[in-house]
Computed example of a mutant assay.
Amino acid sequence: MTFQVPVVDIAPYVQGGSPDEKAAVARAIDVACSTVGFIQILGHGIPLDTRAGLAAAMDEFFCLTLDEKKTYRTPSGINRGYSPPKSESLSLSLGVESASRMNDFFEAFNVGAAQSDYPDAEVDPVHYAENVWPDAAPGFEPRVSAYFAEARRVANTMTDIFADALGLPAGFFDAYTGHSLDVLRMNNYALPPGTVDLDGDLTGMGEHTDYGIVTVLWADQVAGLQVLGADGSWNDVSPADDALLINLGDVTARWTNERWMSTLHRVKPPIVDGTIERRRSAAYFHDGDFDALIETLPSCISAEHPNLYEPVTVGEHIAAKLAGSRAGVRNEKAAREAARVLAAQQQ
């Protein structure tokens, strides 16, 4: 059976469709989340100019020299600013040892929801750190901020759809996302010739699951993203025209007792004529409130499907994952995900 990422038009939720139209969207999302865990969404409503602005902002920053970009680094415990190539290993977030630690060659820049965005909430300024904006790229902040606001809207729309698809009360997820720990990670896959060995098993971004509730992904239509299928095979995925990619995170898998899976994915960079073809992506991670307690939904527990997960806060879960990817500390609490990675590597 050919692997396919379902395409769903969510316009009825964005533009105020009828109850029947929304119900059809919710059913389609349920099927996609139950079978693939990745979705191509159309009708998201993010203007083309805003998406083009994001791409231009990324070009402006990533075209700076490496020394300039490194001035915007933050400590590994602060999920903001610049991450240079080979400073992370996403596979360690699942507790899987890579052949060479900290070997993911992508570079990235992170911005996120800060303490100042939630003046009425008591939040930790470390986890809700203020953003580091590169003054060497003056067009970066306004363009990225414009896209961030649109991506947040889409993420909130997706949780509205999730509530309907799971038969939950309208607004169910609001209680867990009032001060959501949201991050936009902009990735650049391109290195100067000679920086990496193209004859080796090159890793753009190691196999991993996303950490939170849902991810909204903008990406170039360039090969590289691969998604793990139910049969254990890795499959190439590229966004359709005007589409954004949606995938589920670990928090949603926990909530639904794996009725919906947080799908494993990775980036294997395309090599054309002996050089890496540049690829850009920007992932908006909608992770939930740092102090929100995630417990399996009772409707997803039965004699046939006993509860797989102990309660955990969003903060505890994400801290363990980030310690793996950023600090090189293998995550010992991701046994189920690690088993899936190891099984796939044997294919």
Rank of each mutant, 00 (worst) to 15 (best):
A175S: 13
L293W: 09
P47K: 05
D250C: 06
S87G: 07
F109W: 10
E337I: 14
V31L: 12
G95R: 08
A319L: 14
D220N: 13
D160L: 07
D210L: 06
W260A: 00
A243T: 11
F38Y: 12
D241W: 13
T209Q: 08
F140C: 09
V144Y: 10
P119A: 06
Y128V: 09
R254M: 09
A334C: 06
Q115L: 15
A32W: 01
A57L: 12
V36R: 00
D59L: 11
F140K: 03
L308W: 05
G178P: 01
H286S: 10
A11Q: 05
D273K: 13
T263C: 08
V227S: 01
T195H: 08
V144T: 06
A223G: 05
I213E: 01
I213V: 14
S91I: 14
F162Q: 07
R153M: 05
R340Q: 14
F61I: 14
T159F: 02
N235F: 08
V96M: 01
D135L: 13
D67F: 08
S325G: 08
I10R: 00
D117L: 00
P84Q: 04
A253P: 02
F173N: 07
A113M: 13
P12M: 06
L293G: 04
G224E: 09
D120Y: 14
I271Y: 10
R330I: 12
D197S: 07
N103V: 09
Y189Q: 12
V31K: 12
G37I: 06
L191V: 15
D164C: 03
V36K: 00
S100I: 06
F172Y: 11
D241T: 13
N247V: 12
I46Y: 04
A57I: 08
D231H: 12
R153H: 10
E337P: 02
R27A: 13
V312D: 13
E97S: 06
A338M: 05
A56R: 10
I318E: 03
L166C: 05
T256H: 11
P311D: 14
K70S: 08
W260N: 04
V314W: 00
E88P: 09
A121L: 14
E122V: 15
C300V: 01
I161T: 04
Y309L: 03
D182V: 00
E107C: 05
L228Q: 01
M205Q: 13
F105I: 15
A303P: 02
F285C: 01
S83T: 15
V314R: 01
